[in-house]
Amino acid sequence: MIIKQLSIFLENKSGRLADVLGVLGDAGIAIKALTIADTSEYGILRLIVSDDAKALEALRSEGFSVNFTDVISIATPSEAGSFANILKIMAANSISVEYMYAFSFNQKAAIVMRPENITRTIEVMKSQGIDLITSSELRAM
């Protein structure tokens, strides 16, 4: 259930994002999800890719500061109130979210999240009948 996300430290300089994506493209790695958290001087690029081990190696050999982070992904129907329902469950179980990002496709939506306690979050979601996406499912999208 745990998905390996790549977290990359980047300075806010033009061309740096293109550099990362270029390295991944050259290594034949496809990007499945992407988000950036930034400050005025630097940012953290977070990626879910088709081949995480290969991507880590390719980026490290190019000198990027990159690491894996454990995240989970939750599937919901792409309809009003479904996201809110998941957050209500988390709040009721006192689980806080470090960060999250989401995207929708066809009639479904996927939320990628780094919760405070990943194992407990998985248990809670399962007990509530919430659909968790595996990394192979996410990569196949």
Binding site: Q5, S7, F9, A37, D38, T39, Y42, I44, R46, R60, G63, F64, S65, V66, N67, T69, E98, Y99, R114
Partner: peptide, 15 residues
């Protein structure tokens, strides 16, 4: 320089 080996995924950690 931010070290490759030093794991960080959150802005608050960098701050």
């Amino acid at each position: 320089e931010v070290e490759q080996e030093f794991f960080m995924d959150r802005i608050s950690e960098f701050q």
